[in-house]
Amino acid sequence: MFLAAAIALFVSMILVLARLYAGPTVYDRVLAVNSFGTLTVLFIAVLGFLNGRPDFLDIAILYALINFVGTIAILKFFRYRTLGDVPQANKNKGRD
């Protein structure tokens, strides 16, 4: 039964990757990366159950956190052109 779930998750990961490749705007790609990360978390959890290894879930927890931080970092970079502290010039660039 977990094999069916693993295959289903694998298929949806392929589809999200296709959206990542085809996505016209950069925000489609950020959305696809975020969705791919969540699917990876579920895939790791299902694999943990499939192989009878409960310690996979720690990896899944870690990956869920890192995925979120990664998405916000990408968005901040595209918004302010820098990841560090935002210089005053970039503050409301593109918002006017």
Partner: peptide
């Protein structure tokens, strides 16, 4: 898993 596939197809 069905919902996951539906979401991916929708994306």
């Amino acid at each position: 898993s069905a919902f996951t596939i539906i979401g991916a197809v929708g994306t």
